[in-house]
Simulated scan of single mutants.
Amino acid sequence: MTPEQITLVQDSFAKVEPIADTAAELFYNRLFELDPSVRPMFKGDITEQGAKLMTMIGVAVHSLNNLEAILPAVQNLGVRHLEYGVTDTHYDTVAAALLWTLEQGLGPDFTPATKDAWTATYVTLATVMKDAAHAAEA
């Protein structure tokens, strides 16, 4: 990720944070629309799960200038996702739901450069999670 991409992600997330509850609701509705089979993976209160999701995204976004600091937590998250039955294909669905949610929340501020920056961020973090999960399975 380039410094410009990090700035785009951080600046755009600052615009999403005030509508975090709505963004989380949009995200999960879209995720379940794209792949209804993932719904049973979410056993608890989806509103609470949404708050956790937005907090986690916030921590990641604010740590983009120092990814090494959060890598162990990201790796642990990837390993924990194994317990829920998450597979590599689920990461693609999550990416689609996330980008769609950002587009809805940011409107015209979701420029092609912003989309590319978010895609780079997601791919970076998802790759760390998947690699940790694969290592744990081996």
Score class of each variant (00 low, 15 high):
His81Leu: 08
Leu106Trp: 01
Leu82Cys: 11
Ala23Phe: 02
Ala135Ile: 12
Phe110Lys: 08
Ile19Glu: 13
Pro108Phe: 06
Ile57Ala: 07
Met1Trp: 13
Val79Glu: 14
Thr22Ser: 14
Phe110Pro: 02
Asp35Ala: 15
Arg39Asp: 01
Thr124Phe: 07
Ala96Trp: 00
Trp100Val: 01
Ser37Cys: 00
Leu82His: 12
Ala132Trp: 00
Leu26Ser: 11
Ala14Met: 05
Glu25Thr: 15
Val38Asp: 04
Leu34Lys: 12
Lys52Trp: 04
Tyr84Arg: 15
Asp45His: 01
Gly85Tyr: 06
Thr87Lys: 13
Ala60Gly: 06
Val79Ala: 13
His90Pro: 03
Ala69Ser: 12
Thr111Asp: 09
Glu48His: 10
Ala95Ser: 14
Asp45Lys: 05
Thr47Glu: 14
Trp100Cys: 01
His62Met: 13
Val16Asn: 05
Trp118Gln: 03
Asp92Tyr: 11
Ala136Asp: 10
Thr89Val: 14
Thr87Ala: 11
Glu17Gly: 06
Thr89Arg: 13
Glu137Arg: 14
Leu8Ala: 11
Glu48Ser: 12
Thr55Arg: 13
Tyr28Ser: 02
Gly58Arg: 04
Thr101His: 04
Asn29Ser: 09
Ala69Thr: 05
Trp100His: 14
Phe27Val: 03
Asp92Met: 11
Asp45Leu: 03
Leu8Asn: 04
Gly105Cys: 15
Met54Asn: 05
Pro36Ile: 04
Met54Val: 02
Asn65Thr: 10
Leu64Ser: 11
His81Met: 09
Val128Met: 10
Asp35Thr: 12
Asp109Tyr: 02
Ala136Glu: 10
Lys130Val: 15
Arg30Thr: 15
Met129Pro: 00
Gln75Cys: 08
Ala97Pro: 12
Glu48Pro: 07
Ile57Gly: 08
Lys115Arg: 15
Gln104Pro: 07
Ala73Cys: 06
Lys130Gln: 14
Glu17Ala: 15
Asp35Phe: 07
Met41Gln: 09
